[in-house]
């Protein structure tokens, strides 16, 4: 996975309509990185596994 930078995070934020200054982006960067790394570390989930749905018809 490509490593994020403040500039790439700014681009992603703007695409979402979020205008963040350099200080805010620098503060967010390690949190976003940690989240992405954690999700990546989940590894491959078997293809037959569907998303959980708590929405019950019981």
């Amino acid at each position: 996975m490509e490593k994020l930078t403040v500039d790439s995070l700014r681009t992603l934020a703007r695409a979402q309509g979020l205008e963040l200054d350099d200080t805010e982006l620098a503060s967010l960067l390690p949190l976003v990185e940690a989240g992405r790394n954690g999700i990546a570390a989940m590894g491959d989930i078997p293809p037959h596994v569907e998303p959980s749905s708590q929405f019950r018809q019981l």
Binding site: A13, L18, L20, L28, M42, S52, S53
Partner: peptide, 19 residues
Amino acid sequence: RVGAFVTGAEYLKGQRLRS
């Protein structure tokens, strides 16, 4: 704000892990 940077595929990966 961190939640803005989670992709749809990542969200569904989390939901599949829940299963």
